[in-house]
Amino acid sequence: MEKTVLEDIQERLASARRELEEELDRRIAVQRERFRYQMQQGKVRFEADMREWQARYRTGLWRYVTRGHLAYLLTAPVIYGLIVPLIFLDLSVTIYQHICFRVYGIERVRRGSHVIIDRQHLAYLNGLEKLNCVYCGYANGVIAYAREIAGRTERFWCPIKHATRAADPHPHFEKFLEYGDAEAYRAWIESYRRGKPFPESKS
């Protein structure tokens, strides 16, 4: 069958996304050369003179705290209080995917691709700034990790697009079946029951 207009747009969006990701990788490589750091066994390694240069821009901890906004300090317990549900979410989705994804035959999500903690290697950050950056890296990484697990689960159980456009759908959403296409959904169910791989949207 001929591709629908929607499918054509989705393919072009996917192609544009791939091109942008490649451009981003090239720009990251340029920044590595500019700021002279390398990745060694998953860790960031700056050249010595670059670390010395960065350290000149570090604000002392006492000055950082005393000159900060009082309201920021008062809201810190609210922000850091979320560490408990975040750890629970991290543990829960990890256990979930190790049990259920094995049963469903879904490829498991690599946690390290989402939970990235590396800003503590920056010499221009003081101790509190490093702690904040570690926390933000962990919090946003766990949410992205959980989102990918949820996306793969949705793809397995209910791969149907919504009637309205989502603000920022997960990457699997583009391949979902069109909203209202009963024939395609039933064909997918039958295919799934015969153990065939997940089909693309009708084309």
Rank of each mutant, 00 (worst) to 15 (best):
R36G: 04
E22T: 14
Y185G: 00
V134I: 13
Q54M: 14
R26Q: 14
W53V: 06
R152L: 01
N132T: 12
T75D: 05
H69L: 09
E2K: 15
E11D: 15
R119S: 10
K202G: 08
D49F: 08
R27K: 11
Y80G: 09
R110M: 01
Y37L: 05
K161S: 01
M50W: 09
G68T: 07
H114R: 09
T153K: 06
W188C: 01
Q40K: 13
L91E: 09
H162G: 10
I189R: 11
L122A: 03
V142G: 00
Y57I: 06
E129H: 02
H170N: 04
E33S: 13
A55E: 14
R32F: 04
R155D: 04
E154H: 14
K175L: 14
L20D: 13
R51N: 03
H98D: 06
Y96H: 07
V78E: 05
I83V: 15
L91K: 12
E178H: 04
V134W: 01
T4V: 10
Q40C: 03
E47I: 11
T4M: 10
E190C: 07
G105I: 08
L73C: 04
A146I: 01
I79T: 09
W157H: 15
H69G: 06
R165H: 14
D49Q: 08
A187D: 09
A29M: 13
R152A: 01
